[in-house]
Each structure stands twice: as structure tokens, then as C-alpha cells.
């Protein structure tokens, strides 16, 4: 009998109790246990970035993260970015710049961009390109993704 391990996560501001097997990834916990399917699975191997979420404010590949290791952590997913129905500036910028086509990489791109802005490392478009290269977009929306992040940087006052 495999024992399940109780874990408490604060997901999008809500304290959530889970019982998971030790090998359940945070990605599968979000998608299959909590039905938060906004976080996407593109490879399950840390190669594509579709599963990017924010853990305690840092961007992380949730497919490479075991749920049991994150007891007590604050997890923000795409479902938690909008506040009171108002889109996060990045979400609005992605719509304005058509920074996606199929939309499958988009939650990961947006969460990753939110992490990027918090890091404060990217100043130029070249730096955005470099620091967003862990998030693959097979639809090839990259130029629009860079433009959207640049717009949101300005809107959030972190551009220079």
C-alpha cells in the first residue's frame, strides 16, 4: 500500500490541503488533483516551460517539482494572476500584441514573464529574449511575446 502524504499549499492565495503520492509532480497535482488545468504539460521533462508557475514568487517548472517538497509554499498559477476580474498587465499585453496562436504555451509564458519582471534582470529586448528562452512557443509568437513583455514592463514601471 503506497502511503499518501498530506501537503498544504497556498494556491492562488487559497490554502489547499492535498494528499499525494511521493512521486506526484506539482504539475500533475495542479492539473489532476486541483483541476487547475491552466498550467500546461508540454513535455513533463523540464524542456519546454509550458508548466511554469510561480513558487514563492519565483518561476519554476512544475513538472520537475515534486509536490511533497513544496509543503507550505505559495503557488501562483495563471488562474491566480488576474485580480478581481481585471487582467494582469501581462495578460492584457499578450492579447494586445497577439503574443500567442494556439495558446498552449501561453500560461507558462505569462507566468514566466511575471517571474522575469520580478527578477528585474531584463532591461533590453535582447535580455528578454535570452531570459524567456526556457519557454518554447511552437507557434512562433516570440517577437510578439517580447513586445508584450516590453509593454507590460512599461505599464508596471519596471522598464528602463
Amino acid at each position: 500500500m503506497v502511503s499518501r502524504i498530506p501537503v498544504t499549499l497556498v494556491v492562488n492565495g487559497i490554502e489547499t490541503q492535498l494528499e499525494v503520492t511521493p512521486w506526484t509532480t506539482l504539475l500533475d497535482a495542479l492539473r489532476d488533483h486541483l483541476h487547475l488545468t491552466g498550467t500546461k504539460k508540454g513535455c513533463d521533462h523540464g524542456q519546454c516551460g509550458a508548466c511554469t508557475v510561480l513558487i514563492d514568487g519565483r518561476r519554476v517548472n512544475s513538472c520537475l517539482t515534486l509536490t511533497v517538497m513544496k509543503d507550505g509554499a505559495e503557488v501562483t498559477t495563471i488562474e491566480g494572476l488576474a485580480t478581481d476580474g481585471a487582467l494582469h498587465p501581462l495578460q492584457q499585453a499578450f492579447i494586445d500584441h497577439d503574443a500567442f496562436q494556439c495558446g498552449y504555451c501561453t500560461p507558462g509564458q505569462i507566468c514566466s514573464a511575471a517571474g522575469l519582471l520580478a527578477e528585474g534582470k531584463a532591461r533590453t529586448e535582447d535580455e528578454i529574449r535570452e531570459l524567456m528562452s526556457g519557454n518554447i512557443c511552437r507557434c512562433g509568437a516570440y517577437p510578439n511575446i517580447v513586445a508584450a513583455i516590453h509593454q507590460a514592463m512599461g505599464a508596471m514601471g519596471s522598464a528602463s
Partner: peptide, 15 residues
């Protein structure tokens, strides 16, 4: 702008 854009940037679009 895409009419399904909101669903795609909020994670509501279901695959």
C-alpha cells in the same frame, strides 16, 4: 484581437 484571447491568457481555454 482574438475573440478567444481572454480564455487563452487566463487558462480558461480547455484542451
Amino acid at each position: 484581437s482574438r475573440v478567444d484571447g481572454h480564455a487563452k491568457v487566463t487558462g480558461e481555454a480547455r484542451y
